[in-house]
């Protein structure tokens, strides 16, 4: 690997190898923040600066109106997630962070799929929806819109199933999560 400041030539492969550290498991961070302007920017900016890609992001109110919950999922080696968590803690408006253990966590995402469904394929699409317990919330001559809730993986699977029929568009909320049992998230 070429050293900074020296004239050693860097190959593109070396550069890529140095950057590919996102090898760990998926992480769900649940972050409680003060409900103030600019807080989300501070958080997303921090991730960008430390070279992390946020996979999904969901923001909403909590039972306390002065506090919002940000749930975000990302990929990353454990060590670096730890560093990002510590950096997040340094933000004055961040109140609490939980790196949720997948096994102790209920995670759900909501998605809307607009699927091609003309005469021939309509019943087949509806069958798939039934299997996935997706609700059909809108129907037109050539399409229908299905609402599906579940884990990221379930929604991914649903997407794979309906794509062959013709997926016009889709919208996903990103996962929200809460700890199982009595423990506070």
């Amino acid at each position: 690997m070429g050293e900074p400041g020296t004239k050693e030539l860097l190959s593109l492969e070396e550069l890529e190898a140095a950057g590919s550290f996102r090898t760990g498991r998926k992480h769900i961070l649940s972050i409680l923040v003060e409900n103030k302007p600019g807080v989300l920017t501070r958080i997303t900016g921090l991730f960008a600066r430390r070279g992390f890609n946020i996979d999904t992001l969901a923001v909403g109110p909590t039972d306390d109106e002065t506090v919002s919950r940000i749930t975000l999922t990302l990929d990353g080696a454990v060590q670096s997630i730890d560093q990002v968590t510590k950096q997040l803690h340094k933000l004055i408006n961040v109140l609490k962070i939980r790196d949720l253990e997948p096994t102790d966590t209920m995670a759900r995402e909501l998605a809307l799929f607009k699927i091609s469904a003309d005469g021939a394929s309509r019943s087949e699409v509806m069958q798939v929806c039934e299997i996935f317990r997706a609700k059909i919330v809108d129907v037109s001559k050539r399409t229908l819109v299905a609402e599906v809730t579940g884990t990221q993986e379930k929604i991914d699977a649903f997407e794979r199933m309906v794509r062959p029929f013709g997926l016009v568009e889709m919208a996903r909320t990103g996962e929200i999560a809460i700890a199982r049992g009595r423990a506070e998230t």
Partner: peptide, 15 residues
């Protein structure tokens, strides 16, 4: 505030 966000310990615009 936007320009300085990555380089401050904290910042605030008075609302």
């Amino acid at each position: 505030i936007g320009i300085t966000m990555p380089i401050v310990k904290h910042s605030v615009m008075i609302q």
